[in-house]
């Protein structure tokens, strides 16, 4: 086990999209209980540095595997596929149209100071994301289609950004 082991190996999990979250949580806690800097408060500087690196690594690994989008992106990365989300923003027209409608709806609710409408949009968006995540699971675990999986990750990234915008809008109105 070293800092270059892949995240699935680190947590003793099978390298696939479907994840047993209880097993992931348990493995994460087991590892942190071994490597956390609090375990090395009296240790040598070398061990302290190592503990900091390991605990940071375990946190990063856990966050990556816990969230479906980052987990999908990571699996693709392990398979040598770069999702290139920053550069590749080409999307099917229908998807882009839907995006514009979402944006308009958010702006409208924001202008009307309508927090409950924003909450509704957020919930609807969440449902859309879930549907895409199911497709992603299919493309990665059952009927491997990596280019399609990469497109789904890019789409999910768009929806995630929208959800973040809604969240920011709600915060802007509440706080």
């Amino acid at each position: 086990m070293n800092l270059n082991s892949d995240y699935f190996t680190l947590f003793g999990l099978k390298q696939q999209f479907a994840v047993d979250t209880a097993a992931l949580d348990a493995a994460y806690r087991q590892i942190q209980s071994q490597v956390h800097p609090d375990r090395f408060a009296q240790a040598s500087d070398t061990e302290k540095r190592l503990a900091l690196q390991w605990a940071t690594h375990a946190n990063e690994a856990y966050q990556t595997l816990k969230h479906p989008i980052s987990r999908g992106r990571y699996l693709l990365q392990l398979a040598g596929v770069d999702t290139a989300e920053e550069q590749n923003t080409a999307m099917p027209t229908a998807f882009l149209m839907a995006q514009m409608e979402w944006r308009e709806a958010i702006e409208e609710a924001q202008a009307g100071h309508n927090v409950s409408q924003l909450e509704k949009l957020s919930a609807a968006l969440h449902d859309d994301s879930q549907a895409l995540i199911e497709q992603l699971a299919d493309c990665l675990d059952h009927h491997p289609d990596l280019p399609q999986a990469a497109l789904l990750v890019r789409k999910l990234r768009f929806l995630d950004k929208l959800e973040q915008d809604i969240s920011d809008a709600i915060e802007g109105l509440l706080f």
């Binding site: 086990m1 947590f11 003793g12 590892i31 071994q34 490597v35 070398t46 061990e47 390991w54």
Partner: peptide, 25 residues
Amino acid sequence: SRLNTVTGDFAAARMDRNIRRALAG
């Protein structure tokens, strides 16, 4: 600081062992 340096690999190997043991439940 010399002792810190020469124990570097040993510390890494111990960390590896502890993690393996932890994962083995």
